[in-house]
């Protein structure tokens, strides 16, 4: 399949801050991507450049094979729902939906109305008077009903309760199944979306840490616990990401290719072995990468646990 997005050596520097540092990857059409990373990792900057709302310092970006900047052919096929989206003060909810319908050629009005009902959005209310959660819902309605071949959701659920978030996930999956398209979901609630995401991109401090299939990752990271010596021995089979010491026992997160043989080995060493969640992997990888980075504000407050 042709790539929906290719990014080559993308760098973005604001005065003194490197928001993106030679990032390269590509997105295949009709898949759901999870763009993960901590606050300020560079996720929003990346999506702004991909949708031509921001400018790169250097590097190449193509969307559907073309430069996105001022390219109507590309932009009309892209929808970018961001948490910080502002609306003109004279618009009501139904005005925003009508505006989105004008701009997006693939707009599905029936779906939009259904979503407005499901999220209990008041169509007559001025957008400036919506609560944070309602504002997020409005973004989600626009993002899903636009049916854009490339849709970005940047923290789409700020202020949304658990029920509304589930409505979002359900609709996203249902609509994606019926109308496949490329979806990039940037989120902090990794556990909630880990079943949704097919491919993971992890950014930390402007660098791409991980570009892998979610399926592959799931078996790759395990948490092993038991006597320190046994854990030490097991940890040598992979890369240790994190360790907690409790007297003579240790609990370590290890990344590697763990086949059945390794599981047998763990059992023979008397170790407890469990698969780690995607969230745990992300947490371990991003706290780990903090340590060696120069000038990182990795205050020890993040964890008092012994790392390595």
């Amino acid at each position: 399949m042709s790539p929906a997005v290719t990014v080559t050596d993308l760098t973005k520097r604001y005065r003194g801050v490197t928001a993106l540092d030679r990032v390269s990857f590509s997105l295949t059409e009709n898949r759901i991507y999870g763009l993960l990373g901590r606050n300020g990792a560079g996720k929003t900057t990346l999506m702004q450049i991909l949708t031509a709302q921001g400018f790169a310092t250097s590097g190449e970006v193509t969307v559907f094979g073309q430069q996105p900047y001022e390219n109507e052919q590309v932009l009309s096929r892209v929808c970018f729902i961001k948490e910080s989206q502002t609306y003109p003060s004279n618009l009501r909810v139904h005005h925003v939906l009508r505006a989105a319908r004008l701009v997006h050629p693939g707009w599905d009005e029936k779906l939009a109305q259904q979503l407005v009902d499901d999220f209990r959005l008041p169509p007559q209310r001025n957008v400036r008077k919506l609560s944070r959660g309602m504002l997020s819902s409005l973004g989600i309605v626009v993002g899903l009903a636009s049916r854009a071949p490339l849709t970005f959701f940047d923290e789409p659920y700020l202020g949304l309760d658990a029920v509304a978030r589930q409505i979002f996930y359900d609709h996203l999956l249902a609509d994606y199944t019926e109308h496949p398209r490329t979806i990039v979901l940037s989120t902090h609630l990794i556990d909630e979306v880990s079943d949704l995401i097919e491919h993971v991109l992890l950014i930390d401090q402007g660098r791409l840490l991980l570009d892998a299939e979610a399926e592959t990752l799931r078996g790759q990271v395990v948490t092993v616990s038991g006597p320190v010596a046994a854990v030490d021995e097991f940890a040598r089979t992979g890369a240790e990401l994190h360790r907690v010491l409790l007297g003579a026992t240790a609990r370590a997160t290890v990344r590697g290719d763990f086949g059945p043989a390794v599981h047998d080995q763990a059992r023979s060493l008397g170790l407890g072995l469990e698969a780690s969640s995607l969230q745990e992997l992300v947490v371990r990888l991003t706290t780990n990468s903090n340590a060696p980075a120069p000038g990182a504000d990795s205050a020890g407050a993040a964890s008092k646990e012994a790392v390595r």
């Binding site: 031509a52 001022e70 390219n71 109507e72 932009l75 009309s76 929808c79 701009v103 854009a148």
Partner: peptide
């Protein structure tokens, strides 16, 4: 900002 957010060129 609204129009650009919807996917319109400058």
């Amino acid at each position: 900002p609204f129009a650009l957010g919807l996917g319109v060129s400058r």
